[in-house]
Simulated assay, not measured.
Amino acid sequence: MAFVLSLLMALVLVSYAPGGSLGCDLSQNQVVLGRKNLMLLGQMRRLSPRFCLQDRKDFSFPQEMVEGGQLQEAQAISVLHEMLQQSFSLFHTERISAAWDTTLLEQLRTGLHQQLDHLDACLGQMTGEEDSALGRTGPTLAMKRYFQGIHVYLQEKGYSDCAWEIVRLEIMRSFSSSASLQERLRMMDGDLSSP
């Protein structure tokens, strides 16, 4: 319980600290949080992927939509938000892998929550009422379908430890791809704020 309270206090402090305001400044801090979450996913490995070769699956990550340069800023933020929201939901699944270190899992959840809070503010500032329409556009819809496929896979595999290991690797891959999107968004934000 003390650990959870410490995490909540840290979240509050980050939200109100200088440079941690929830405005739509896609700072380097957002990129650092993304890298930290990727690192946490790497540390969560408990099974050798070689042990789970029979469970491999191509989830058809919409990489060209995430890494391609055709997305407008609001669309890119919406896609990134959807990816983080779906990941947050995935790692709150009731049948999460018992093989994972709970401390690392809680740190990952907290990091994803911090990123989501920041992007919620950005989406609200950028789109206002258009926010719900962005969720129905092609790139965001493709991200929803991608995660739907992951949920179906986990169900089909009975939420086995190997299935979770394959999903962990897949989410790491998607987070790695999203790092370029986050960097591009940060640059777009810098271009928009310069005179």
Rank of each mutant, 00 (worst) to 15 (best):
M83L: 15
D58V: 13
M126T: 05
S15Q: 04
W164K: 01
M83Y: 14
M172A: 08
H92V: 04
E82L: 09
Q70G: 11
Y16P: 03
M126P: 02
P195N: 07
F61D: 04
G19Q: 00
M143L: 09
S194G: 12
V12F: 12
Q28F: 01
F175T: 00
G111R: 00
A98C: 11
M188C: 15
A179M: 03
P195F: 09
L5A: 13
R95T: 07
I166L: 04
Q54N: 12
L41N: 02
S97A: 13
Y16H: 04
H81L: 08
G23S: 02
E129S: 11
V79T: 08
L169E: 06
L134N: 03
L141E: 12
S193T: 02
E165Q: 03
E73I: 04
V32L: 10
Q70P: 13
Q86N: 07
L40Y: 08
L112Q: 01
K157Q: 04
D55W: 06
L26Y: 01
A121I: 11
Q63S: 15
I166Q: 12
D120E: 11
L40Q: 07
T103C: 13
P49K: 06
G23D: 05
Q63D: 12
G158F: 01
F147Q: 08
G190S: 12
G23E: 07
Q125W: 02
L53N: 05
A142E: 07
D55V: 04
S27I: 01
T137N: 07
S78C: 15
E156W: 03
E73W: 06
S160R: 01
E94V: 08
S60L: 09
I150F: 03
A179Q: 03
Q85C: 13
Q115V: 00
F51Q: 14
F3A: 14
A179K: 00
F3Y: 11
E170G: 02
E67R: 15
V12N: 10
H118F: 05
M172V: 02
D101I: 11
W100E: 10
H113K: 09
F175D: 00
W164F: 05
L123G: 12
I77C: 09
L169M: 14
M44F: 05
R184N: 00
V12A: 08
S78P: 06
S6H: 09
V4E: 11
D161W: 00
L90D: 08
S89P: 12
G138E: 07
T93A: 14
E183P: 01
L53T: 07
L181G: 01
M1R: 11
D161C: 06
Y146C: 04
A98W: 12
L123D: 06
G138K: 05
D25V: 09
L13G: 07
I77M: 10
L185S: 05
M172C: 02
Q182P: 09
M143P: 14
A76P: 15
G42L: 10
